[in-house]
C-alpha cells in the first residue's frame, strides 16, 4: 500500500548518499594531496570539513523527525538505526581525511622522505572499501558487505608492513624521525578509515538480514 512516509525514507536515503559522496571526495582528494604533495588541495579538504559537519547535523535532525512522526517498525526501524549509526562513521571518515591532509601540510615543509609504496596501497584499498560499503547500502547487498569486511585484514597487514619499514628509516637517521612518525600517523588514519568502512558494512548486514555481526568474538557472524 502506498505510504506517504516512503517519500521521507527515500529523501533520507538520498541525503545519506549525498553525504557519502562528499566524504568520498574528501578521501580521494586527501590521497591525491598526499601523493602529489599538493598543499593547496590539502587545505581545500580541511575547509570542506565544515560542510561535512553541517550535513551530519542535518541528517541527525531529519532522522529524529522521521522517528517521531512515523514510529517505524521492522525493516523501517532497522533502516533508521542504520542511518543513525552510519552517519557518524562517515563523519569520522571525513575527519580522518582532514587529519591526513594536516599531516600532508606538515610533511610538505620537508623534502619527501621516501617513495611511498605501502601507504598508497592501503589508501586505495580503504577508499575502495568506503565506496563499496555505500554501494552495499544502496543495493542492500549483504554479500558485498561481508566481502568488504574481509578486506580489513589486508589493510591491517599493510599497516604492519608500513610501520616496520618506517621504523627502519627512523633507526637509520634521527633527522627522519619527524617525517616517519607523521607518515605512521597517516597510515593509522587510513587503517581507521577502513575500520569505519567495516562498521558501515556491519550495519548493512543488520539492515538487510536483521543479524548483528559486530564484535564477532561475542556474537555469531
Amino acid at each position: 500500500m502506498h505510504r506517504h512516509f516512503d517519500r521521507d525514507i527515500a529523501e533520507l536515503t538520498e541525503l545519506l548518499l549525498k553525504f557519502g559522496a562528499i566524504v568520498e571526495d574528501s578521501i580521494s582528494h586527501s590521497i591525491q594531496a598526499l601523493l602529489e604533495r599538493d598543499t593547496e588541495l590539502a587545505e581545500q579538504v580541511i575547509q570542506r570539513d565544515d560542510e561535512i559537519d553541517r550535513m551530519e547535523l542535518d541528517i541527525d535532525a531529519a532522522t529524529l523527525q522521521l522517528i517521531a512522526k512515523m514510529q517505524p517498525a521492522a525493516v523501517d526501524l532497522r533502516f533508521v538505526a542504520t542511518i543513525m549509526k552510519v552517519t557518524p562513521d562517515l563523519e569520522r571518515i571525513g575527519d580522518l581525511a582532514v587529519d591526513v591532509c594536516e599531516r600532508v601540510l606538515e610533511l610538505n615543509r620537508e623534502p619527501q622522505l621516501k617513495r611511498l609504496i605501502a601507504i598508497p596501497r592501503m589508501a586505495k584499498i580503504s577508499q575502495e572499501m568506503v565506496r563499496q560499503a555505500l554501494d552495499a547500502f544502496v543495493r542492500r547487498d549483504a554479500q558485498l558487505a561481508r566481502e568488504v569486511i574481509a578486506r580489513d585484514d589486508e589493510v591491517d597487514a599493510l599497516t604492519e608492513e608500513s610501520f616496520r619499514e618506517l621504523l627502519t628509516y627512523m633507526m637509520e637517521d634521527p633527522k627522519n624521525i619527524a617525517r616517519a612518525i607523521r607518515l605512521t600517523f597517516v597510515g593509522k588514519y587510513f587503517e581507521r578509515i577502513a575500520d569505519s568502512a567495516t562498521n558501515i558494512c556491519e550495519m548493512v548486514v543488520y539492515l538487510v538480514e536483521g543479524k548483528v555481526i559486530k564484535h564477532a568474538d561475542i556474537t555469531e557472524a
Binding site: 521521507d8 533520507l12 568520498e24 591525491q32 565506496r131
Partner: peptide, 21 residues
C-alpha cells in the same frame, strides 16, 4: 574534482527534505 561513481550521485542542489521545510 575526481569523478567517482556517479550512478548513485544525487543532485547537490536539492533543497532540504520536505520534513524540515
Amino acid at each position: 574534482m575526481t569523478t567517482l561513481d556517479f550512478e548513485r550521485r544525487v543532485e547537490t542542489n536539492r533543497p532540504v527534505t520536505s520534513m524540515q521545510q
